Amino acid sequence: MAAGGDHGSPDSYRSPLASRYASPEMCFVFSDRYKFRTWRQLWLWLAEAEQTLGLPITDEQIQEMKSNLENIDFKMAAEEEKRLRHDVMAHVHTFGHCCPKAAGIIHLGATSCYVGDNTDLIILRNALDLLLPKLARVISRLADFAKERASLPTLGFTHFQPAQLTTVGKRCCLWIQDLCMDLQNLKRVRDDLRFRGVKGTTGTQASFLQLFEGDDHKVEQLDKMVTEKAGFKRAFIITGQTYTRKVDIEVLSVLASLGASVHKICTDIRLLANLKEMEEPFEKQQIGSSAMPYKRNPMRSERCCSLARHLMTLVMDPLQTASVQWFERTLDDSANRRICLAEAFLTADTILNTLQNISEGLVVYPKVIERRIRQELPFMATENIIMAMVKAGGSRQDCHEKIRVLSQQAASVVKQEGGDNDLIERIQVDAYFSPIHSQLDHLLDPSSFTGRASQQVQRFLEEEVYPLLKPYESVMKVKAELCL
């Protein structure tokens, strides 16, 4: 049975990233139509530049190519590739079939990587351009969430054990800070992308030097003109047959890092959902379990974690691919890159769409948070109580021993009897502590235990987050809708 299948058929496997999760716009960027249309555009740009620099290419040939950029006979191309065992030459023939007058000058002087690699770089750039505003929107939604809850005390956790208090907004800023680093890295790697350009079979530009009869300047002009037509500021000066596969490492490393950030955020949300302090959106008709109707599973956060793990592992592909590119190139890269580049971007696209949807509907339960604080705060307040007693004339050592005994009794009630923490009640009825009984409410005010959390939130948002989001103001209103 021949390899390949009808990918629109229910009898043929289709990647869930495309069929179930990723956005239509990201799927289109990695589609065959987008790819092969870009090949034709690159052939047109090459012909236009070659004509401008004096090669015998007519206006009629150029116009014929322009008129057929979208006229792609995919069936013919597939048949040609089956016959020739070469995808680029299959599309040269297919393009030439609908451009008979231009057929002889299509791909003039070029090698397969002229269309293959340059198209990949265009796709990487455009895919990054799709991700950047999506990530900015996630940051914006979380920034709104953090600002609104900047002063809401909550129990902090280290080692997932109760620690000092923080605020809900401050905790959210930990998430935002990681995503801001990801946004900066995505922008950097996007701006650092260079075009492969017009380089020939081993990167020496020998074929173009021959076409222009040894004119170095025209060869350099050709490279520059096509690079500018493709919208790049610069091209690699040095290439082998391909652009260095280190570029793929750079791009997928940034995406993998984004995956790590999203995994951490969504894990926190899942843990908070278990504590009943916070939940992701839950639709009115949504079913959490087929057997347990009360369940409210954090399905979206779980999906993000599941896909983020996949995204983090994909960076190993370009690392290994770059390491086995012998001399000017081997074909070890080809099949692998067809999979890992598309999957990385479709996965990143999915987790950003999902995280935006989550961040637009996060639900906080202040009463649950308050109750958990009441359970733990008495123990945390013991040092403040000791200091207040010393100020009232008591002995630190005597007070410490009193607190120690009462704390152990209260802990026994919590752990052995399943009761509430009654340390404060014990202190309130103990005559030894009568000098500070009137101060206990103040000493137990949760806001006095959150330090500068709310001020940190305000400063972080104003100095770091809002300036970073400013270039994306025009796209901030787009909502994230999930079908599944």
Score class of each variant (00 low, 15 high):
residue 369 I to T: 08
residue 352 L to W: 03
residue 118 N to E: 00
residue 257 S to Q: 08
residue 254 V to L: 12
residue 38 T to S: 08
residue 307 L to A: 13
residue 149 R to V: 11
residue 413 V to A: 08
residue 50 E to S: 08
residue 196 R to E: 10
residue 168 V to A: 06
residue 320 Q to D: 01
residue 259 G to P: 03
residue 384 N to Y: 06
residue 194 R to V: 06
residue 238 I to V: 11
residue 51 Q to E: 06
residue 343 E to L: 04
residue 311 L to Q: 07
residue 74 F to Y: 12
residue 108 L to M: 13
residue 192 D to H: 09
residue 367 K to Y: 06
residue 365 Y to N: 15
residue 213 E to N: 11
residue 43 W to M: 06
residue 208 F to S: 04
residue 150 A to T: 11
residue 460 F to K: 00
residue 451 G to N: 01
residue 84 L to N: 09
residue 55 L to H: 08
residue 272 L to Y: 06
residue 290 S to E: 02
residue 27 C to P: 14
residue 241 Q to V: 00
residue 35 K to L: 11
residue 115 V to T: 12
residue 350 T to V: 14
residue 35 K to A: 10
residue 273 A to F: 14
residue 94 T to F: 06
residue 26 M to F: 03
residue 245 R to T: 01
residue 342 A to F: 07
residue 76 M to Q: 14
residue 411 A to S: 08
residue 456 Q to D: 03
residue 302 E to G: 01
residue 177 Q to V: 12
residue 359 S to K: 07
residue 173 C to I: 02
residue 331 L to M: 05
residue 437 H to S: 10
residue 223 D to Y: 00
residue 275 L to Y: 06
residue 200 G to E: 01
residue 395 S to R: 07
residue 476 M to F: 15
residue 362 L to A: 09
residue 21 Y to S: 00
residue 228 E to Y: 13
residue 481 E to W: 11
residue 220 E to Y: 08
residue 191 D to E: 12
residue 426 R to L: 08
residue 88 V to F: 04
residue 339 I to W: 01
residue 96 G to R: 00
residue 366 P to E: 13
residue 62 I to R: 05
residue 128 L to C: 09
residue 202 T to R: 01
residue 299 M to C: 13
residue 248 D to G: 01
residue 135 L to P: 07
residue 443 L to Q: 02
residue 19 S to H: 13
residue 448 S to L: 15
residue 355 L to H: 04
residue 218 K to R: 13
residue 166 T to E: 02
residue 286 Q to K: 03
residue 122 I to L: 14
residue 478 V to D: 15
residue 461 L to R: 02
residue 169 G to Y: 02
residue 294 Y to R: 01
residue 246 K to G: 03
residue 253 S to G: 12
residue 53 L to E: 05
residue 407 S to G: 10
residue 75 K to T: 12
residue 255 L to Q: 07
residue 288 G to F: 04
residue 207 S to A: 13
residue 97 H to A: 12
residue 28 F to C: 06
residue 143 A to K: 03
residue 375 Q to C: 05
residue 119 T to A: 12
residue 38 T to L: 07
residue 339 I to Y: 05
residue 131 L to W: 00
residue 13 Y to S: 08
residue 42 L to A: 04
residue 417 E to F: 09
residue 313 T to E: 03
residue 239 T to N: 03
residue 426 R to H: 10
residue 242 T to Q: 07
residue 250 E to S: 10
residue 106 I to P: 00
residue 66 K to F: 07
residue 351 I to C: 11
residue 479 K to D: 15
residue 299 M to L: 03
residue 130 L to Q: 07
residue 330 T to P: 01
residue 86 H to N: 00
residue 279 E to M: 06
residue 382 T to P: 01
residue 96 G to S: 10
residue 11 D to Y: 09
residue 201 T to E: 00
residue 164 Q to M: 13
residue 113 C to W: 01
residue 249 I to Q: 05
residue 402 K to L: 08
residue 194 R to Y: 11
residue 261 S to Y: 01
residue 298 P to C: 11
residue 134 K to R: 10
residue 351 I to N: 01
residue 128 L to V: 10
residue 410 A to N: 04
residue 427 I to V: 12
residue 329 R to A: 01
residue 47 A to H: 04
residue 151 S to R: 11
residue 148 E to I: 09
residue 251 V to K: 00
residue 391 K to Q: 13
residue 317 D to A: 08
residue 160 F to Y: 12
residue 131 L to K: 07
residue 2 A to R: 14
residue 122 I to V: 09
residue 21 Y to Q: 01
residue 4 G to P: 14
residue 441 D to H: 11
residue 434 S to C: 09
residue 336 N to L: 12
residue 297 N to V: 01
residue 407 S to E: 02
residue 421 N to H: 10
residue 311 L to K: 02
residue 30 F to R: 01
residue 199 K to H: 00
residue 173 C to D: 04
residue 233 K to M: 14
residue 47 A to G: 10
residue 333 D to A: 02
residue 367 K to H: 08
residue 228 E to W: 13
residue 252 L to R: 02
residue 76 M to C: 14
residue 403 I to Y: 05
residue 368 V to H: 04
residue 480 A to D: 12
residue 147 K to D: 10
residue 111 T to K: 00
residue 261 S to R: 02
residue 441 D to W: 07
residue 216 D to N: 14
residue 232 F to I: 05
residue 391 K to H: 13
residue 220 E to D: 13
residue 211 L to Q: 10
residue 393 G to L: 05
residue 315 V to T: 13
residue 441 D to Y: 13
residue 186 L to N: 06
residue 476 M to D: 15
residue 10 P to T: 15
residue 447 S to L: 15
residue 296 R to P: 03
residue 344 A to D: 04
